[in-house]
């Protein structure tokens, strides 16, 4: 049923549908946890979009200096990609009943995620050791802030991942476990997509956001 029709019906009249059956409330045809995760992803999207907009706004100033290039970030990106793939594998395996594959996938995902976080920390150290380093440079400040918030979101995800892994190890309820692994996978894909956007636009060293601004006619 489309939303528009739902919101224009006259509730005082439409007590019954044409087939004489009481009007049915329409909900999304997925578990509540999935809806909650999607709503939460919207919130996170708004959060990072605002930072992206702030970044772009600051970039329009004349004194803009780009972030120094860091090769390490390419490795970190690949770690995140691997962990996302591993989780997807775990999710698909569990749905097909291959529990041991699912366990392997979960552990791999965890290892790669931790590797990503350590890599990010390493990137911070590397950056602050550079000669170019200057904390009043907004590009560097944004780098720290955005990677920190992205990392915290991944850390929060790791808590859920930990609980899910324990569940898969000993839970006799496959349906619940499968749902939880699927939600973890969704979250990881989202964080990967988010990171890819941030990385390509802001941190891959070319200031690709500039092109976006040029296209929008702002620069």
């Amino acid at each position: 049923m489309n939303l528009f029709r739902q919101l224009t019906e006259k509730p005082w009249e439409a007590a019954h549908g044409p087939d004489g059956v009481l009007a049915r409330p329409r909900r999304f045809d997925v578990p509540a946890a999935t809806v909650a995760l999607r709503v939460f992803l919207c919130v996170v999207t708004v959060l990072f979009s605002l930072m992206l907009v702030a970044y772009a706004e600051r970039m329009l100033y004349e004194d803009w200096r780009p972030t120094p290039r860091q090769w390490l970030l390419w490795f970190n990106t690949s770690f995140l990609v691997f962990s996302s793939i591993a989780l997807q594998w775990a999710s698909v395996s569990l749905r097909r009943g291959r529990v041991s594959d699912a366990r392997d996938g979960l552990v791999l995902a965890g290892i790669f995620s931790v590797a990503f976080l350590l890599g990010q920390l390493w990137a911070w150290r590397q950056l602050s050791a550079m000669i170019l380093f200057d904390i009043t440079n907004p590009a560097i400040a944004f780098f720290f802030m955005i990677t920190a918030l992205h990392g915290l979101h991944l850390l929060g995800g790791l808590v859920a991942w930990g609980r899910t892994t324990v569940e898969v190890w000993r839970e006799p309820l496959p349906e619940r476990a499968a749902l939880h692994v699927r939600l973890c996978a969704t979250y990881w894909h989202f964080l990967l997509g988010l990171w890819l956007v941030l990385f390509t636009l802001l941190f891959s060293g070319n200031d690709n956001l500039t092109w976006l601004l040029v296209i929008c006619g702002l620069r």
Binding site: Q6, E9, A23, P25, R27, A32, A36, V39
Partner: peptide
Amino acid sequence: GLNYVVTVLQARARGMTLMR
């Protein structure tokens, strides 16, 4: 907030349409 939104979306009683 997630709770409030999801409860309204997913846990309404039978017959409780949005416009009711």
